[in-house]
Computed example of a mutant assay.
Amino acid sequence: MNPLELFEKWFSEEKQASKLKLPAACCLSTIGLDGYPNSRFVSLKEVTEEGFVITGPLNSRKGTEVEETPKAALSFWWTETQRQVRIQGDVTKVSTHKARKYFNERNRSSQIVSFGFQQGKKIESIKYLQNQFNQKIIEFEGKEIECPETWSGIIIKPTRIEFMRFKETRLHERKLYSRVKNTWEISILQP
């Protein structure tokens, strides 16, 4: 089975079994500008034939890191099905058309935050942040919010995908799919 299809199957099974609000939450790891790994939780938007799509501001820390070193990793942990998926791959940007589509699917508050704030920048206080947000709500009342030029999506094109099914015996089942040229090689790994 193609590993992207296997991922979709496992993801679907977790969504059916889970009562979690955010089953698409995953840990995105990038190579920091200072050489240290950098991880944060993001939301998977879509799985395409090309790979795994996440979105956000390109001028954020994650955006500048993947611009400098276009490689990333995603990790998923699904409690209900006791499964983990780890993905490593090369990063490319989605098209402008796709970025706008993803932006338009966001709820209004998320659009306001994406348009009116610079992710990760220092601020005076939480109160200042709330006041700025309230002003943006008034400013955009009754108006469509355009996708900012600094906001887009990235695709992580997998070179390796590891699937691990946890077992009570600790003899976890691990399969590693590695892309070699245009085919997937499968290895069974020890727990």
Rank of each mutant, 00 (worst) to 15 (best):
Asn2Pro: 04
Glu5Ser: 10
Leu6Ala: 10
Leu6His: 09
Phe7Asp: 01
Phe7His: 04
Glu8Gln: 05
Glu8Phe: 04
Lys9Phe: 13
Phe11Cys: 03
Glu14Ile: 00
Ser18His: 12
Pro23Asp: 15
Ser29Ile: 03
Ser29Asn: 07
Ser29Gln: 08
Ile31Asp: 04
Asn38Phe: 04
Ser39Phe: 05
Arg40Met: 12
Val42Ser: 06
Ser43Arg: 11
Leu44His: 00
Val53Pro: 00
Val53Cys: 08
Asn59Leu: 05
Arg61Asn: 10
Arg61Gln: 14
Arg61Leu: 12
Arg61Tyr: 08
Lys62Ala: 02
Glu65Ala: 02
Val66Glu: 01
Pro70Ser: 05
Ser75Gln: 15
Phe76Val: 08
Thr79Gly: 10
Thr81Ile: 04
Thr81Val: 04
Gln82Lys: 09
Gln82Pro: 02
Ile87Asp: 03
Gly89Cys: 02
Val94Ile: 12
Ser95Ile: 08
His97Gln: 15
His97Tyr: 14
Lys98Asn: 06
Ala99Gly: 09
Glu105Asp: 15
Asn107Thr: 02
Ser110Thr: 06
Ile112Glu: 06
Ile112Asp: 06
Val113Phe: 04
Lys121Trp: 10
Lys122His: 12
Glu124Ile: 06
Ser125Arg: 08
Lys127Ala: 15
Leu129Gly: 07
Gln130Trp: 13
Asn134His: 15
Asn134Cys: 15
Asn134Ala: 15
Asn134Phe: 15
Lys136Met: 14
Glu139Asn: 07
Phe140Lys: 10
Ile145Pro: 02
Ile145His: 02
Ile145Arg: 00
Trp151Pro: 00
Ser152Pro: 04
Lys157Trp: 07
Pro158Gly: 01
Glu162Pro: 05
Glu173Ser: 11
Arg174Tyr: 07
Arg174Cys: 10
Lys175Trp: 10
Tyr177Pro: 04
Arg179Cys: 11
Val180Ala: 12
Lys181Thr: 10
Lys181His: 13
Glu185Lys: 15
Ser187Val: 14
